[in-house]
Nucleic acid binder design. Structure first.
Lengths: 345, 345
DNA sequence: CTGAAAGCGCTTACAG
DNA sequence: CTGAAAGCGCTTACAG
């Protein structure tokens, strides 16, 4: 089936009526609508998206930009694939399609985004891995493209974002460890300029302060956000003089590498070293002793992301009252055995 | 910058000339072309893709369909993200953009594909995770949409595909094990209807036959393609009477779960049980003893996939001589310690 | 409730 | 080498 013209001819009615029937417009005879829908189904007609887009000025496509960094790839980090389900559950209601736009690793993310937006392949964008200073945010704001960011940034002033509750996680982790008698608590933070690193370390500092503990910069161990990074963090931790008795990890898979390094060194997590991981992750579920970490539903996060985005789009904002356009997403403590011992001074 | 009309007005020339200049057509004055390109850059003009698509009949977008199954997500399987780099390196040369189309887990993959194709959001498709009988292949063939499949299938007769050399891997693994004296060799295969399972098990059977070993169906352990599946395979292996002395795994992350199960049972891989893994994977690199497995470049695989696809597209086939439209992609043995012992009967 | 017509933003024969 | 015009496939005021 080529186009609406053939379908209309086949039904012996005008293309206008066919279009109205297909698009659920109210002013169509019920009988006519049924005939049209049946014929479309039978002949496999679906409206050409370019034609629609050109006329309507919208593509009905939402882009999720992802950066396939070496690290992400090696980690097998499927954070986004999980969020995707939640996003789609909302978008489907409005016949919006989600496409993932992988930025080639050799292209500047900002340039890539500009190109995609300028070509108008999407109506709106979801960006993530926000940097502390992120040009993409300024660009999208200025270009008035609806968007939502997964992650805060110092850029762009007021813009829609959702971020994980790093403060809550840091505060909870520090409080637990302090309650068990720990005084020297290390933290494994990312070595990149990603904004969550700053947020997390700040919150850790403040939590220490609240508990009257001195902040020691040497306890911030900067490593890659990966299993290997966790291993590296383990190595650096072992080399610290006056070795910390506890460590908080900012990335879920670090725990696996850290455990391995500890086992190699004869240091037993949960007995000689308290470990608190970040996000609960299937692959870390089998660590022995079980890892204390934090739980969240990536699907629900995706749903919220989608709703936040739609609230900023004129065509949908009525359905999704704007309200809080910035959300701190809570994580729930999932206690394990990795920090279940008490330090006696 | 709104559209080509404004840009043309700004330059005081016709939109036709602007278009020709922007699209590298030969019949444009060099001076004019420079002025146009400069103005476009300055004003941030990029052609609206819907307009282009409608006129040209092509979208210049290639779709990579991915199925975000529960398993894939939990595994953190980033096979595709890695292949993406290779795909893009080829597509970029032709100003083609790659988008990943995630099929919602509650939608039938075949219906999803039909919808995407009918809406003409992409010029061509890359599909994967091919089933033994895969309706998508018949559909794409019939609809004459250029496509390439990552994975063979029994469907569709003659169509372009690339697949990993499962035969080679199975043959090599069995030969190695037999040479070390193993007579009872188990194999962990996928429990789903994915075609690679059939191909791999067949090749394993044939390899046994070549070495004069009897095929024992109880040695085919069907489990999920995941870490957990590997663990499960370990459990089942331990329960087998006349326990096999070796196991071949069909999925890379199975090794991690299998090792864990073996350690729990006091069975030492590389001493009490020979293990040969499938694809070399960063996360399995730290297993002790090191895993014998097979190496391939996912980036190169992506490049080949892209080239195979372009060879089937009329607009590019001249540049990519069709030649072999079916490729068996070789894997290179990466010997480790996990199968380095000899059985003495 | 339906039809005829305009026009979304481009590219591309066609004239000159 | 450039301009004027047609037309890709739709949706949507506008008339009736």
């Amino acid at each position: 089936m080529k186009g609406i013209r053939q379908l209309a001819k086949h039904l012996d009615i005008s293309i206008g009526t066919v279009s109205r029937a297909l698009n659920d417009k109210p002013d169509v005879n019920e009988e006519t609508r049924k005939r049209v829908l049946a014929a479309a189904e039978e002949l496999g007609y679906v409206a050409n998206q370019s034609g629609r887009s050109l006329r309507q000025g919208t593509t009905n496509v939402i882009g999720l930009m992802i950066e396939a960094s070496q690290e992400t790839v090696e980690n097998g980090d499927n954070f986004f694939l999980s969020v995707t389900g939640g996003l789609q559950s909302v978008f489907t209601r409005h016949k919006l399609d989600l496409v993932m736009l992988p930025c080639p690793s050799d292209e500047d993310p900002h340039e890539y985004l500009k190109r995609m937006v300028a070509r108008r392949v999407v109506d709106a964008m979801i960006i993530s891995a926000t940097q502390r200073i992120d040009k993409r945010i300024d660009f999208l704001s200025k270009a008035k493209i609806p968007f939502v960011a997964l992650g805060r940034s110092s850029s762009g002033g007021n813009y829609p974002w959702i971020d994980l509750d790093f403060e809550g996680v840091a505060a909870c982790a520090v409080a637990r460890l302090v309650a068990k008698g720990h005084r020297r608590i290390a933290i494994a933070a990312p070595s990149t300029d990603i904004n969550l690193g700053y947020v997390f370390v700040d919150a850790y500092r403040q939590a220490l302060e609240r508990h009257g503990l001195e902040f020691d910069p040497s306890l911030i161990i900067r490593v890659k956000s990966s299993e290997q990074g966790g291993y590296q963090a383990g190595t650096e931790l072992l080399q610290l003089e006056n070795r910390p008795t506890a460590i908080i990890l900012i990335y879920e898979l670090m725990a696996i590498g850290l455990y391995r390094r500890m086992v190699e060194a004869g240091v037993v997590p949960g007995r000689d070293l308290a470990v608190i991981g970040f996000r609960e992750e299937p692959r870390a579920r089998f660590l022995q002793p079980t890892l204390t970490c934090f739980r969240l539903s990536l699907r629900d996060l995706g749903t919220k992301l989608a709703e936040t985005l739609l609230a900023t789009m004129p065509a949908y904002s009525a359905l999704y009252p704007k309200g809080a356009q910035n959300t701190i997403w809570p994580l729930e403590l999932a206690p394990g055995e990795s920090d279940a011992f008490t330090i006696t001074p």
